[in-house]
Amino acid sequence: MNATTLSLREGLARRVVRGVGSPRLTLALIALVGLAVIGHARVEGGLAGPLAAAFAMAAANLAAALLTNARLRADLALFVFHLSLLALLALAATGRLTALTGTLELAQGEVFDGHLLTREAGPLHPDRLARLRFVNDGFTIDYAEGWRRGRTTNDVRAFGQDGRAVHHAIGDITPLVLEGYRFYTTSNKGFAIVMRWVPRGGQPPERGTVHLPSYPLNEHRQAQSWRIPGTSREAWVMLDLDAPAIDPSRASTFQLPGAHRLVFVTGGERRELRPGDNISVPEGVLVYEGLTAWMGYKVYYDPTLPWLLACAAVGVLALAAFFWRRFGREGRGA
Protein backbone atom coordinates (compact mmCIF):
# COMPACT_ATOMS: atom_id res chain seq x y z
CA MET A 1 0.00 0.00 0.00
CA ASN A 2 1.61 3.30 -1.00
CA ALA A 3 1.27 6.82 0.42
CA THR A 4 -1.21 7.88 -2.27
CA THR A 5 -3.59 5.02 -1.42
CA LEU A 6 -3.37 5.86 2.30
CA SER A 7 -4.05 9.50 1.68
CA LEU A 8 -7.05 8.60 -0.52
CA ARG A 9 -8.44 6.37 2.22
CA GLU A 10 -7.94 9.07 4.87
CA GLY A 11 -9.65 11.56 2.61
CA LEU A 12 -12.56 9.19 2.07
CA ALA A 13 -12.88 8.49 5.81
CA ARG A 14 -12.85 12.21 6.53
CA ARG A 15 -15.56 12.79 3.93
CA VAL A 16 -17.66 9.98 5.40
CA VAL A 17 -17.35 11.37 8.94
CA ARG A 18 -18.14 14.85 7.66
CA GLY A 19 -21.17 13.46 5.84
CA VAL A 20 -22.37 11.65 8.97
CA GLY A 21 -22.00 14.86 10.95
CA SER A 22 -23.75 17.05 8.38
CA PRO A 23 -26.14 19.70 9.83
CA ARG A 24 -28.76 18.76 7.21
CA LEU A 25 -28.60 15.15 8.37
CA THR A 26 -29.05 16.44 11.95
CA LEU A 27 -32.34 17.98 10.93
CA ALA A 28 -33.47 14.77 9.23
CA LEU A 29 -32.46 12.75 12.30
CA ILE A 30 -34.33 15.08 14.65
CA ALA A 31 -37.40 14.39 12.52
CA LEU A 32 -36.64 10.66 12.58
CA VAL A 33 -36.32 10.63 16.38
CA GLY A 34 -39.62 12.50 16.55
CA LEU A 35 -41.32 9.91 14.35
CA ALA A 36 -39.81 7.06 16.38
CA VAL A 37 -41.06 8.66 19.60
CA ILE A 38 -44.57 9.01 18.15
CA GLY A 39 -44.44 5.39 16.95
CA HIS A 40 -43.23 4.23 20.37
CA ALA A 41 -46.12 6.06 22.02
CA ARG A 42 -48.80 4.88 19.63
CA VAL A 43 -47.94 1.23 19.05
CA GLU A 44 -49.11 -1.21 21.71
CA GLY A 45 -46.05 -2.45 23.61
CA GLY A 46 -43.88 0.36 22.20
CA LEU A 47 -41.20 0.36 19.53
CA ALA A 48 -38.08 0.14 21.67
CA GLY A 49 -35.88 -1.13 18.80
CA PRO A 50 -36.63 1.60 16.24
CA LEU A 51 -36.50 4.21 19.01
CA ALA A 52 -33.05 3.01 20.12
CA ALA A 53 -31.90 2.94 16.47
CA ALA A 54 -33.08 6.51 15.89
CA PHE A 55 -31.30 7.70 19.03
CA ALA A 56 -28.15 5.77 18.02
CA MET A 57 -28.14 7.45 14.60
CA ALA A 58 -28.63 10.85 16.25
CA ALA A 59 -25.72 10.07 18.59
CA ALA A 60 -23.50 9.12 15.64
CA ASN A 61 -24.42 12.35 13.86
CA LEU A 62 -23.70 14.34 17.03
CA ALA A 63 -20.33 12.65 17.57
CA ALA A 64 -19.31 13.18 13.93
CA ALA A 65 -20.42 16.82 14.09
CA LEU A 66 -18.34 17.38 17.23
CA LEU A 67 -15.33 15.92 15.40
CA THR A 68 -15.71 17.70 12.09
CA ASN A 69 -17.68 20.90 12.65
CA ALA A 70 -15.17 23.62 13.52
CA ARG A 71 -17.91 26.13 14.40
CA LEU A 72 -19.30 23.75 16.95
CA ARG A 73 -15.89 23.42 18.60
CA ALA A 74 -15.06 27.12 18.38
CA ASP A 75 -17.72 28.09 20.91
CA LEU A 76 -17.03 26.45 24.27
CA ALA A 77 -20.61 26.73 25.56
CA LEU A 78 -22.10 25.31 22.35
CA PHE A 79 -19.49 22.54 22.34
CA VAL A 80 -20.22 21.62 25.97
CA PHE A 81 -23.98 21.60 25.30
CA HIS A 82 -23.62 19.18 22.38
CA LEU A 83 -21.11 17.08 24.31
CA SER A 84 -23.62 16.88 27.18
CA LEU A 85 -26.32 15.73 24.76
CA LEU A 86 -24.02 13.01 23.47
CA ALA A 87 -23.11 11.97 27.01
CA LEU A 88 -26.81 11.86 27.95
CA LEU A 89 -27.54 9.51 25.05
CA ALA A 90 -24.56 7.29 25.96
CA LEU A 91 -25.54 7.23 29.64
CA ALA A 92 -29.19 6.47 28.86
CA ALA A 93 -28.04 3.54 26.69
CA THR A 94 -25.67 2.32 29.42
CA GLY A 95 -28.51 2.65 31.90
CA ARG A 96 -30.74 0.40 29.78
CA LEU A 97 -28.00 -2.24 29.75
CA THR A 98 -27.32 -2.13 33.49
CA ALA A 99 -30.68 -1.15 34.99
CA LEU A 100 -33.12 -3.29 36.92
CA THR A 101 -36.81 -2.71 37.57
CA GLY A 102 -38.83 -5.08 39.68
CA THR A 103 -41.66 -5.47 42.13
CA LEU A 104 -42.02 -7.27 45.44
CA GLU A 105 -44.49 -7.58 48.28
CA LEU A 106 -43.69 -7.84 51.96
CA ALA A 107 -46.12 -8.56 54.75
CA GLN A 108 -45.57 -6.73 58.00
CA GLY A 109 -42.61 -8.28 59.76
CA GLU A 110 -41.41 -10.06 56.64
CA VAL A 111 -37.77 -9.75 55.56
CA PHE A 112 -36.77 -9.02 51.96
CA ASP A 113 -34.49 -11.84 50.86
CA GLY A 114 -33.66 -10.74 47.31
CA HIS A 115 -36.66 -12.42 45.71
CA LEU A 116 -38.68 -10.32 43.26
CA LEU A 117 -42.19 -11.00 41.92
CA THR A 118 -41.47 -9.33 38.58
CA ARG A 119 -38.09 -8.43 37.21
CA GLU A 120 -36.72 -6.70 34.14
CA ALA A 121 -32.97 -6.26 33.99
CA GLY A 122 -30.43 -5.23 31.38
CA PRO A 123 -27.89 -7.86 30.28
CA LEU A 124 -25.07 -6.12 32.18
CA HIS A 125 -26.91 -5.70 35.45
CA PRO A 126 -24.61 -6.59 38.36
CA ASP A 127 -27.09 -8.50 40.51
CA ARG A 128 -26.52 -7.70 44.19
CA LEU A 129 -30.12 -8.02 45.35
CA ALA A 130 -29.45 -11.23 47.26
CA ARG A 131 -27.07 -9.30 49.58
CA LEU A 132 -29.78 -6.84 50.61
CA ARG A 133 -31.95 -7.31 53.66
CA PHE A 134 -34.70 -5.13 55.04
CA VAL A 135 -37.84 -5.78 57.00
CA ASN A 136 -41.24 -4.13 56.61
CA ASP A 137 -42.13 -2.89 60.10
CA GLY A 138 -45.58 -1.66 59.11
CA PHE A 139 -47.06 1.32 57.33
CA THR A 140 -49.69 4.02 57.66
CA ILE A 141 -51.65 5.56 54.80
CA ASP A 142 -53.92 8.56 55.18
CA TYR A 143 -57.11 8.65 53.17
CA ALA A 144 -59.30 11.64 52.40
CA GLU A 145 -63.04 11.18 51.96
CA GLY A 146 -63.81 8.96 48.95
CA TRP A 147 -60.71 6.74 49.37
CA ARG A 148 -58.41 9.40 47.99
CA ARG A 149 -54.97 8.29 49.04
CA GLY A 150 -52.82 10.69 51.03
CA ARG A 151 -49.45 10.35 52.71
CA THR A 152 -47.82 6.89 53.00
CA THR A 153 -45.26 6.26 55.72
CA ASN A 154 -43.58 2.88 55.85
CA ASP A 155 -41.19 1.99 58.68
CA VAL A 156 -38.45 -0.35 57.53
CA ARG A 157 -35.23 -1.62 59.07
CA ALA A 158 -32.33 -2.21 56.74
CA PHE A 159 -29.59 -4.61 57.75
CA GLY A 160 -25.97 -3.93 56.84
CA GLN A 161 -23.37 -6.60 56.02
CA ASP A 162 -22.43 -6.61 59.73
CA GLY A 163 -26.06 -7.39 60.63
CA ARG A 164 -26.68 -4.00 62.23
CA ALA A 165 -30.19 -2.63 61.65
CA VAL A 166 -30.88 0.96 60.62
CA HIS A 167 -34.41 2.35 60.78
CA HIS A 168 -35.82 4.30 57.81
CA ALA A 169 -39.21 5.94 57.26
CA ILE A 170 -39.94 5.73 53.55
CA GLY A 171 -42.95 6.39 51.32
CA ASP A 172 -44.28 8.66 48.55
CA ILE A 173 -41.20 10.63 47.45
CA THR A 174 -38.71 8.97 49.81
CA PRO A 175 -37.29 5.62 48.70
CA LEU A 176 -35.10 3.25 50.68
CA VAL A 177 -31.69 3.23 48.99
CA LEU A 178 -29.50 0.17 49.54
CA GLU A 179 -26.30 -0.27 47.52
CA GLY A 180 -27.80 1.78 44.66
CA TYR A 181 -31.11 -0.13 44.68
CA ARG A 182 -34.02 2.21 45.30
CA PHE A 183 -37.10 0.67 46.95
CA TYR A 184 -40.32 2.65 46.57
CA THR A 185 -43.64 2.07 48.31
CA THR A 186 -46.52 1.84 45.83
CA SER A 187 -50.29 2.17 45.80
CA ASN A 188 -50.36 -1.65 45.71
CA LYS A 189 -51.01 -2.88 49.25
CA GLY A 190 -53.58 -4.93 51.09
CA PHE A 191 -54.33 -7.57 53.69
CA ALA A 192 -52.47 -10.81 54.24
CA ILE A 193 -53.74 -13.94 55.93
CA VAL A 194 -51.32 -15.37 58.48
CA MET A 195 -51.42 -19.19 58.59
CA ARG A 196 -49.47 -21.83 60.48
CA TRP A 197 -49.13 -25.20 58.76
CA VAL A 198 -48.42 -28.27 60.89
CA PRO A 199 -47.72 -31.29 58.61
CA ARG A 200 -48.66 -34.79 59.80
CA GLY A 201 -45.45 -36.34 58.57
CA GLY A 202 -43.38 -34.92 61.44
CA GLN A 203 -41.82 -32.11 59.41
CA PRO A 204 -41.42 -28.82 61.29
CA PRO A 205 -44.38 -26.42 61.25
CA GLU A 206 -44.28 -23.49 58.83
CA ARG A 207 -45.69 -20.01 59.23
CA GLY A 208 -46.55 -17.97 56.16
CA THR A 209 -48.85 -15.39 54.65
CA VAL A 210 -51.27 -15.37 51.76
CA HIS A 211 -51.54 -11.93 50.19
CA LEU A 212 -55.05 -10.93 49.20
CA PRO A 213 -55.57 -8.60 46.21
CA SER A 214 -54.76 -4.90 46.62
CA TYR A 215 -57.14 -3.04 48.92
CA PRO A 216 -59.28 -0.92 48.58
CA LEU A 217 -58.87 -1.21 44.78
CA ASN A 218 -60.27 -4.77 44.88
CA GLU A 219 -62.67 -4.26 47.77
CA HIS A 220 -65.10 -6.89 46.49
CA ARG A 221 -62.48 -9.38 45.28
CA GLN A 222 -60.69 -10.20 48.52
CA ALA A 223 -60.06 -13.84 47.58
CA GLN A 224 -56.98 -15.86 46.70
CA SER A 225 -56.09 -19.40 45.60
CA TRP A 226 -52.88 -20.98 46.86
CA ARG A 227 -51.24 -24.35 47.43
CA ILE A 228 -50.53 -25.68 50.91
CA PRO A 229 -46.72 -25.99 51.21
CA GLY A 230 -45.24 -29.43 50.55
CA THR A 231 -48.52 -30.80 49.21
CA SER A 232 -50.49 -30.80 46.00
CA ARG A 233 -53.55 -29.51 47.85
CA GLU A 234 -55.17 -26.34 46.44
CA ALA A 235 -56.93 -23.99 48.81
CA TRP A 236 -59.08 -20.94 48.27
CA VAL A 237 -59.67 -18.23 50.84
CA MET A 238 -61.93 -15.21 50.90
CA LEU A 239 -62.01 -12.39 53.39
CA ASP A 240 -65.59 -11.62 54.32
CA LEU A 241 -65.92 -8.15 55.87
CA ASP A 242 -68.97 -6.77 57.66
CA ALA A 243 -68.01 -3.21 56.67
CA PRO A 244 -65.26 -1.65 54.53
CA ALA A 245 -61.97 -1.61 56.41
CA ILE A 246 -61.50 2.02 55.33
CA ASP A 247 -64.62 4.15 55.65
CA PRO A 248 -65.00 5.98 52.30
CA SER A 249 -67.44 8.53 53.75
CA ARG A 250 -64.82 10.30 55.87
CA ALA A 251 -61.09 10.91 56.25
CA SER A 252 -59.48 7.74 57.51
CA THR A 253 -56.34 5.63 57.53
CA PHE A 254 -55.46 2.20 56.18
CA GLN A 255 -56.21 -0.27 58.93
CA LEU A 256 -56.85 -3.93 59.45
CA PRO A 257 -60.55 -4.85 59.47
CA GLY A 258 -62.15 -5.52 62.82
CA ALA A 259 -64.96 -8.07 62.58
CA HIS A 260 -64.35 -10.49 59.76
CA ARG A 261 -64.63 -14.12 58.70
CA LEU A 262 -62.31 -16.09 56.55
CA VAL A 263 -64.02 -18.42 54.11
CA PHE A 264 -61.75 -21.38 53.47
CA VAL A 265 -62.41 -23.96 50.76
CA THR A 266 -60.32 -27.05 50.01
CA GLY A 267 -61.21 -30.40 48.48
CA GLY A 268 -64.87 -29.38 48.14
CA GLU A 269 -65.15 -28.59 51.86
CA ARG A 270 -66.09 -25.05 52.96
CA ARG A 271 -65.33 -23.63 56.41
CA GLU A 272 -65.57 -20.22 58.01
CA LEU A 273 -62.60 -19.41 60.18
CA ARG A 274 -61.92 -16.82 62.83
CA PRO A 275 -58.47 -16.05 64.26
CA GLY A 276 -57.24 -19.05 66.24
CA ASP A 277 -59.46 -21.57 64.40
CA ASN A 278 -57.87 -24.48 62.65
CA ILE A 279 -58.84 -26.86 59.90
CA SER A 280 -57.68 -30.41 59.53
CA VAL A 281 -56.87 -31.95 56.16
CA PRO A 282 -55.31 -35.40 55.47
CA GLU A 283 -51.81 -33.90 55.11
CA GLY A 284 -51.86 -31.81 58.29
CA VAL A 285 -53.49 -29.00 60.23
CA LEU A 286 -53.82 -25.36 59.20
CA VAL A 287 -54.18 -22.72 61.89
CA TYR A 288 -55.58 -19.32 60.97
CA GLU A 289 -53.63 -16.89 63.16
CA GLY A 290 -55.14 -13.63 61.92
CA LEU A 291 -54.70 -10.80 59.47
CA THR A 292 -51.81 -8.49 58.78
CA ALA A 293 -51.02 -6.01 56.01
CA TRP A 294 -48.66 -6.25 53.05
CA MET A 295 -46.98 -3.50 51.07
CA GLY A 296 -46.06 -3.67 47.39
CA TYR A 297 -42.69 -2.16 46.51
CA LYS A 298 -41.07 -1.16 43.27
CA VAL A 299 -37.31 -1.56 43.07
CA TYR A 300 -35.20 0.42 40.64
CA TYR A 301 -31.48 0.29 40.01
CA ASP A 302 -29.65 2.48 37.51
CA PRO A 303 -26.02 3.37 38.23
CA THR A 304 -26.08 6.16 35.65
CA LEU A 305 -28.62 8.30 37.53
CA PRO A 306 -26.19 10.78 39.17
CA TRP A 307 -24.22 11.08 35.94
CA LEU A 308 -27.38 11.71 33.93
CA LEU A 309 -28.32 14.50 36.31
CA ALA A 310 -24.84 16.02 36.16
CA CYS A 311 -24.80 15.91 32.34
CA ALA A 312 -28.27 17.41 32.08
CA ALA A 313 -27.35 20.23 34.48
CA VAL A 314 -24.10 20.99 32.64
CA GLY A 315 -25.91 20.85 29.28
CA VAL A 316 -28.64 23.28 30.33
CA LEU A 317 -26.09 25.68 31.87
CA ALA A 318 -23.98 25.56 28.71
CA LEU A 319 -27.05 26.21 26.56
CA ALA A 320 -28.07 29.17 28.71
CA ALA A 321 -24.49 30.54 28.55
CA PHE A 322 -24.43 30.18 24.76
CA PHE A 323 -27.69 32.04 24.22
CA TRP A 324 -26.83 34.63 26.86
CA ARG A 325 -23.63 35.54 25.01
CA ARG A 326 -25.13 35.30 21.55
CA PHE A 327 -28.20 37.44 22.16
CA GLY A 328 -26.44 39.66 24.67
CA ARG A 329 -23.84 40.47 22.02
CA GLU A 330 -26.50 41.11 19.39
CA GLY A 331 -28.52 43.16 21.85
CA ARG A 332 -25.50 45.36 22.58
CA GLY A 333 -24.71 45.60 18.91
CA ALA A 334 -28.26 46.63 17.95
Binding site: P23, T26, L27, I30, A31, V33, G34, V37, I38, H40, A41, G46, T101, D172, I173, T174, P175, R182, Y184, K298, V299, Y300, L305, L308
Partner: peptide, 30 residues
Protein backbone atom coordinates in the same frame (compact mmCIF):
# COMPACT_ATOMS: atom_id res chain seq x y z
CA UNK B 1 -37.59 9.39 39.88
CA UNK B 2 -38.31 10.27 43.50
CA UNK B 3 -42.07 9.89 43.24
CA UNK B 4 -42.62 6.94 40.92
CA UNK B 5 -39.25 5.25 40.65
CA UNK B 6 -38.56 6.15 37.04
CA UNK B 7 -37.13 9.32 35.57
CA UNK B 8 -38.77 8.84 32.20
CA UNK B 9 -41.61 6.56 31.14
CA UNK B 10 -42.87 8.01 27.86
CA UNK B 11 -46.30 8.78 29.30
CA UNK B 12 -48.36 10.96 26.90
CA UNK B 13 -47.38 14.26 28.48
CA UNK B 14 -43.71 13.26 28.66
CA UNK B 15 -43.81 12.09 25.06
CA UNK B 16 -45.36 15.29 23.74
CA UNK B 17 -43.20 17.53 25.94
CA UNK B 18 -40.17 15.80 24.46
CA UNK B 19 -41.58 16.24 20.95
CA UNK B 20 -42.04 19.96 21.66
CA UNK B 21 -38.42 20.12 22.89
CA UNK B 22 -37.33 18.30 19.75
CA UNK B 23 -39.31 20.69 17.55
CA UNK B 24 -37.72 23.66 19.32
CA UNK B 25 -34.26 22.13 18.95
CA UNK B 26 -34.90 21.38 15.27
CA UNK B 27 -36.14 24.92 14.63
CA UNK B 28 -33.16 26.57 16.33
CA UNK B 29 -30.78 24.19 14.55
CA UNK B 30 -32.41 24.89 11.18
Amino acid sequence: QDAWGRYWAWDPLETWSFLTWLALAGLLHA
